[in-house]
Design a protein around this nucleic acid. Structure first.
Length: 285
DNA sequence: TCCGTATGACTAG
DNA sequence: TAGTCCTACGGAT
């Protein structure tokens, strides 16, 4: 689940369900128990996401810093009188009392990489390490371009580097490079500014859609299952994509088999034809 | 019951 | 670069 759109969506949903509410905070699993006890009964101020980092604010500039890692989940569900007993390893549970109705929302956090109570200064330090986040209106894509245009590292690796760009993960990385027909192994410093601007604008659009529909959809209208008369994708991500986890299957655009290779311990997917290997221009032609 | 896998990121050497 | 951490689930053993 967790690329930037997931965290921004969670921030919105948490704010909707809990902001301004007195919240019961617990750690059924125990690993966040001390902090939970400090926060229990306080009014939740709101939640905000920066890239893949989530901060849930409590009074007095206290923040629960959450990072879901590879497989963490934060589930929000409605409850009536009392929320059900926790299932599995619930690190953090938030329960809104439901000030008037008696029913409310509860949120269960499992498998998170990070769940810590931090100060404003500590939150700022985390944020300071991040590159611009396409989902934030205050983001400056020029800051990412500065890094990319000066780096010989592959654009595929740069897009995953959270200090270059915050919020993009393995799915958006593969998909946005496909949509722009760029070889993932191409060095950052061989891209043109125009190409970067187009990638950024596309990420803003794709990721905003991701927040809205709560999944990653990247195929254009003409390549949807309906338009192509093919079976819709059925897996735990749900969204329609061009190359992510489609290795060995035909490219939706050219029919060439999608390829995969392990790059920095992560699976990289691309179409070798649509994303042809970059070769520097030569004077003769 | 064990193993592999997953949309992530850190630390030690 | 290797090792580590976090959890759930499906498939092989």
């Amino acid at each position: 689940m967790p690329e930037g759109h997931t965290l921004h969506r969670l921030a919105l949903d948490l704010s909707d369900a809990f902001a301004g509410e007195q919240v019961r905070v617990s750690s059924p699993q125990g690993r966040f128990a001390d902090s939970a006890a400090l926060l229990d009964g306080q009014v939740l101020v709101g939640a905000e996401a920066w890239g893949k980092q989530l901060f849930v604010e409590f009074p007095g500039e206290q923040y629960v810093h959450i990072h879901l890692g590879l497989y963490g989940k934060l589930d929000l569900k409605p409850h009536t009188a009392e929320p059900p007993l926790p299932v599995g390893q619930v690190r953090l549970r938030l329960v809104s009392a439901g000030s008037t109705t008696g029913s409310g929302t509860y949120a269960d956090l499992r498998g998170a990489n990070t769940c810590n109570l931090v100060t404003a200064a500590q939150r700022d330090a985390v944020v300071a390490k991040l590159g611009p986040d396409p989902l934030r209106d205050d983001a400056d894509p020029g800051r990412a371009w500065l890094r990319i245009s000066r780096s010989r590292t592959s654009i595929g690796a740069l897009l995953m580097d959270q200090s270059v760009l915050a919020g993009v993960g393995n799915v958006y990385r593969a998909e946005v490079l496909f949509r722009h027909r760029i070889d993932p192994m191409r060095p950052g410093n061989t891209l043109r500014r125009k190409q970067w601007d187009a990638i950024w604008d596309d990420l803003v659009e794709l990721m905003k859609l991701g927040v809205q529909v709560n999944r990653i959809d990247t195929v254009r209208e003409e390549h949807t299952p309906e338009a192509m008369g093919r079976a819709p994708r059925k897996d735990d991500h749900g969204g329609e994509v061009y190359v992510y986890r489609r290795s060995g299957q035909p490219c939706l655009v050219c029919g060439t088999n999608v390829r995969t290779v392990e790059l920095q311990q992560r699976n990289l997917f691309w179409c070798p034809k649509c994303q042809r290997t970059y070769r520097p221009r030569t004077s003769a032609k």
